[in-house]
């Protein structure tokens, strides 16, 4: 027979569990996905998470948005019991994570969606689930004829009105490589890029510390033309800032954003389920639409809306207009480039 004391204890425990709902789930499996902060997190919460829950019979998932460097630091600090199951990276940090043995290869042979990704997105170390696209951004109130080439940044009429970022960001580094290519260089010959940057100095109103800071400078009229990230510009535009995005005739710089299973993750199956969902045409189609405007990597997604209008009308068009860079080569030299930028680019 249950004594009154036992009954009391039981009800107190239940009450405590009611108070701290996290406790009862502490033992249950839950997937931790380190996405990017801001609009990426919003998009993933709204579209990817429901798709994942549907596919896994309501498995628990936590979005823990953080910078790539924090993801790497946290996983490195606890390799055997990583606090993150799935990482999301720009090309530079992705290579660092792979080199340091932090990620597990994706089981591509058993994947339903992997084979449908366009060739550039297929990476065994972790497939690309979206592209980030860098083109020219300008203020249409001040610049009446839209720019058509990266070279327009050097036009004398933009004296003191152009902006760039330093090499800390993927955008800044990718831009340097692109202008090096334009003036006869390449990933392994960056010299023409630095020369071009030096020539750009009279036009520079700002060397922003990061792409976010650069974007806000349009708002203040500090900058009228700059390289810019398609998604960042859409956010500004939605808030009524006068900015437009165009793909220069040399092509837009495209970065693969890759998703990785963390090595030694206890939730490997759930991680695979999340990545499958992220690659699926369904999720990518929804993410492509307004307000998310995430550039799809699955060839089965039919381009439409703003992305079809501004970036590429289909996958074939995308291949023509997007330029992918060799980040393996870039990563090897990035430290030297940053050092050189530190020394040479003073306004």
């Amino acid at each position: 027979m249950t004594s009154r004391r036992q009954l009391l204890q039981a009800s107190l425990t239940l009450g405590a569990l009611q108070l701290f709902p996290g406790m009862s789930h502490a033992q249950a499996k839950r997937l931790v996905f380190a996405t990017f902060t801001g609009s990426w997190e919003e998009a993933h919460r709204a579209v990817l998470v429901p798709a994942f829950k549907k596919a896994t019979n309501n498995a628990e998932i936590i979005l823990d948005p953080m910078l790539s460097v924090d993801q790497i630091a946290k996983v490195t600090a606890a390799r055997n019991n990583p606090p993150i199951d799935v990482m999301l990276h720009d090309p530079g940090p992705a290579l660092t994570a792979i080199d340091q043995g932090l990620v597990e290869n994706y089981p591509v042979a058993t994947s339903a969606n992997y084979k449908d990704l366009i060739a550039e997105a297929q990476e065994e170390t972790g497939p690309a689930i979206f592209f980030q696209v860098v083109g020219l951004t300008y203020n249409p109130d001040k610049i009446k004829t839209p720019p058509t080439s990266w070279k327009d940044l050097w036009k004398p009429e933009y004296k003191g009105r152009a902006g760039i970022t330093n090499l800390n960001s993927t955008l800044g580094t990718g831009f340097l490589v692109e202008i090096a290519k334009m003036f006869g260089g390449s990933e392994s010959n960056i010299e023409p890029g630095f020369k071009a940057l030096n020539d750009l100095k009279p036009n520079l109103a700002a060397v922003a510390a990061n792409p976010g800071a650069l974007a806000t400078l349009f708002q203040q009229g500090q900058v009228d033309i700059s390289p810019g990230n398609f998604n960042a510009i859409q956010i500004l535009k939605a808030r009524g800032v006068p900015v437009e995005f165009v793909i220069p005739k040399e092509g837009a710089i495209a970065f693969k954003t890759t998703i990785h299973i963390v090595k030694n993750s206890p939730n490997r199956e759930l991680a695979v389920a999340l990545i499958e969902a992220a690659m699926s045409p369904d999720v990518q189609t929804k993410l492509m639409q307004s307000p998310y405007l995430v550039v799809p990597t699955n060839s089965k997604v039919k381009m439409d809306g703003e992305i079809a209008k501004v970036l590429a009308k289909d996958q074939a068009d995308m291949k023509k207009r997007f330029v992918f860079q060799d980040w393996k080569k870039i990563n090897e030299q990035r430290a030297q480039w940053i050092e050189r930028f530190n020394r040479e680019i003073k306004l």
Binding site: I72, V207, A208, R334, I338, L347
Partner: peptide
Amino acid sequence: LIGGGQMLFMPMYLYQQVSALS
């Protein structure tokens, strides 16, 4: 934010090595 990316002070120097170059 006010000095910009072309001014290098110790905090930014440190941040750069960690965040961009690990």
